[in-house]
Amino acid sequence: MSKAGVLVISHGSRSPEWIELIDRAVADIGDLGSGTEEVPIVSSFLEIVEGRLIQDGIDSLEAQGVTDIVVVPLFVSYGSTHVEEIRYALGDLPAPSFDTDLQPFRLRANVHMCPPLDDDPVVADIVFDRLRSLTDRPERQRVLLVGHGSEIPQFYRRWKTGMDRVAARLRLLGGYADVRSALLLPDETREAFADWRESEPDCDIVVVPLFLSSGYFTNTVIPQRLDGLRYTYDGKALLPHPSVSRWMERQAAERLKRIGPRRNLC
C-alpha cells in the first residue's frame, strides 16, 4: 500500500515576510492530477526556520502515511550548492562534489526529485511580465539579469548556463536590444555595463534581479555593486507571482505521474 506526498524545499530566512511569500506560493498550488485522493503538501526549509526544517517536513509526511515523497526544490538555479547538498542528504546523490555539513536525513519513504527553476521557460515569462512596467522602448533597451552565482567553477558554469538560456528566451519574448546575465559571485555586473556603454554611451539599461524573493541581495548588494551607474531598477524578484505556484504544481504533477498506479492507495 502506497501513498504520495509533496515536499517543497526552499532556503529559509529570518524575515517573516520572506517566509510568508513562500507559504502563500505553496498554499496556491492547485490540482496535481491525483484523482480523488488528496496529495499532502508540506513546505520546509534548509535552515533557520526552526520546526519547519527538511527533517520536520519528512517526518510530517511520513506520519501521514506517505511512502513516496516528490521533492520540489524551490531554488533559482542548478548552480546553487544547496540543491546538490539537499539531493545528497535525501539519498538522490551518492556524494556531494564539495564539503557540506548537511547530514543524510532520516527517512523511510522513496524520494523523487524535481529540478529547480533554472532555465524553465516560466522564469523568462515572469521576468518579461515584470519588465512591462519598466520598459517602454524595448528595441532600444538592454536588460541585465543579475544572479547570485558561485566561486566554485562547476557551480558557476551551471549558474551561467541556466541564466544565459533565460536571457536568450527573454530577448525573443521582449524584442530587447540585448539581454545578458551577470553574477555577483564572481562579480560581473560592472563589466556588462562597461561593454554596453562603450558601444552606445547613452543606451538605456534595465537591471533585473534573478532571485526568488526580495531581500538583502536585491535591496542592498546589487545597488551597492552598481553604485554610480545609470540604470532602471525596481528590485522585484520572482515572488510574488502566480506562475511560481503553477511551476511547482506542474513539476509535482509530472513527477507524480511517473510514480505510477501505486500512488495513494492507502
Score class of each variant (00 low, 15 high):
K3H: 06
K3Y: 05
A4G: 11
G5H: 12
G5R: 00
V6F: 03
L7S: 04
S10L: 02
S10C: 10
S13H: 13
R14H: 09
W18Y: 13
L21I: 00
D23M: 12
R24A: 06
R24C: 14
A25T: 15
G30Q: 00
G30C: 02
L32Q: 04
S34C: 06
G35K: 02
E37P: 00
P40Q: 05
I48G: 07
L53E: 04
Q55L: 00
D56R: 00
G57H: 00
G57M: 00
I58G: 01
D59C: 06
D59V: 03
S60Y: 03
E62W: 01
Q64H: 03
G65F: 02
V66E: 14
V66M: 00
T67E: 04
D68Y: 09
I69K: 15
V70Y: 08
V71R: 06
F75M: 14
S80Y: 06
T81S: 12
H82Q: 07
H82C: 04
V83A: 05
E84C: 02
I86D: 05
R87D: 06
G91E: 09
L93C: 07
P94G: 14
P96E: 04
F98E: 08
F98V: 14
F98S: 13
D99S: 02
T100A: 00
Q103Y: 10
D120H: 10
V122I: 15
V123F: 13
V123S: 10
D125T: 11
D125K: 09
I126C: 11
F128H: 12
L131M: 11
R132E: 14
S133T: 15
T135K: 10
R137F: 14
R140Y: 14
R140T: 12
R140G: 08
R142N: 14
V143M: 09
V143H: 12
V146Y: 10
V146M: 06
S150L: 09
Q154I: 08
R157S: 15
K160N: 09
T161V: 12
V166M: 13
A167I: 08
R169H: 11
R169D: 07
R169G: 09
R171Q: 13
R171T: 13
L172M: 04
A177S: 06
V179R: 11
V179Q: 05
R180H: 13
S181L: 05
S181D: 03
S181K: 09
L184Q: 00
L185Q: 15
E188Y: 12
A192T: 01
A192S: 05
W196H: 14
W196R: 13
P201M: 01
D202L: 12
C203I: 11
C203L: 07
I205V: 02
I205R: 06
V207K: 05
V208Q: 15
V208G: 11
P209A: 06
L210H: 13
L210D: 04
L212F: 05
L212C: 08
S213L: 11
S214P: 05
G215K: 01
R225K: 09
L226T: 04
L226E: 11
L226C: 10
D227W: 02
L229C: 09
L229D: 07
Y231N: 03
Y233H: 11
Y233I: 01
L239I: 03
H241Y: 14
M248C: 11
E249H: 13
E249R: 15
L256K: 04
R258M: 04
R258Y: 01
I259R: 05
G260K: 03
